[in-house]
Amino acid sequence: MVNTEIVLIDRPPDDRTSVSTQLLHHLWEALPFGIAQIDTDHRIVFTNDKFDEITGRADGEHLADRLDRVRPADQLALDKAVRTVLAGDDVEIELSMTRPHLGVRRCSAVLSTLVGRSGYGTTGALLCLTDITHQARQRDEILHLAMHDDLTKCLNRPAVLDALAAACADDTGVAVIFIDLDEFKAVNDTYGHAAGDSLLVSIADRLRQSTRNASIGRLGGDEFLVIARNVPSPEHAEHLGRRLARAVRRPLHLCGTIRPSASVGVAWSADPHADPSALVARADAAMYQAKRRRHAHVTVG
């Protein structure tokens, strides 16, 4: 008969706590994104190495010290997000920061509220920071392609109409300038479609060079729409339309020298409740009135 005595030896509580702490530390360091824990006074409680790597800061007592490279345009959003999460609501934002030798980096920041053991009362927050610069660039490129005409790089029809709607809502004076090239079909027939494409590209460049802070759109074919903000009067809008018509008429070397021309119609409004479609229709009607005169004149509708 064999007697067996089993003796269980417990580790001291502090040893178990130490093992748990080390495990948690290794887990946090293994995460592919940065983590910072702050208290209700915005003081740093903990950061992992990835957070320090992304921010380029490994010192500083407060969160603001670690995120002092956030660009000014995003600083207000960050401050608001921190206030919101410490008030008990989780937040997700994007922000940009400038890193020496790395340039501007785009980051996703997810802020989560930390509460006490009873489940009540905010004790601080966790901030998870991910460098999404590459993804953001891809997203911006896709968005740019979706909003722009492949040939002229102008805004496409939906995008320029969206720009008009925003201008109508925000500004005190909006000029809508409808431009239709004269005899564009003759250029295609005489010189070929490649020459016609070159003409459209040149006209788009001239419109951009002749305006400041305006949205240039190609509606299709040989039609362009220019949306100019902060235009104080119909007279100023007409003046801009005439300037664009003169820019279009400059001689162009394209399989020989040609002198393009355009019929231009202008509509203006200072009504924040103006119907964008109605403004385009007015500019379109004014353009056709100019075209019927067989001149590259500007007509205000």
Rank of each mutant, 00 (worst) to 15 (best):
222 D>R: 11
279 L>Q: 14
98 T>M: 11
80 K>Q: 03
254 L>W: 11
54 I>K: 12
174 V>P: 07
99 R>L: 15
276 P>A: 07
85 V>C: 05
154 C>A: 13
261 S>F: 00
186 A>M: 07
157 R>G: 00
218 R>C: 12
163 A>G: 00
261 S>I: 01
17 T>P: 03
243 R>L: 10
30 A>F: 04
213 N>M: 02
150 D>L: 07
120 Y>H: 07
1 M>K: 01
141 E>K: 08
212 R>F: 03
201 V>G: 08
258 I>V: 15
185 K>Y: 00
176 V>T: 13
200 L>Y: 02
173 G>A: 05
110 V>A: 08
169 A>H: 14
70 V>W: 03
209 Q>Y: 06
30 A>G: 04
243 R>E: 06
219 L>E: 00
10 D>H: 13
156 N>C: 14
266 V>P: 08
199 L>M: 14
248 V>M: 01
296 A>T: 12
60 G>L: 07
146 A>P: 06
240 L>G: 04
22 Q>G: 03
101 H>Q: 06
77 A>Y: 03
118 S>F: 09
114 L>F: 02
229 R>I: 05
25 H>G: 15
205 D>E: 09
66 R>Q: 13
188 N>D: 04
193 H>I: 05
272 P>E: 02
32 P>H: 11
237 A>G: 02
53 E>Y: 12
136 A>K: 15
191 Y>M: 04
27 L>I: 12
46 F>C: 02
121 G>A: 10
244 L>Q: 13
65 D>P: 03
186 A>K: 11
6 I>G: 00
249 R>Q: 01
51 F>I: 00
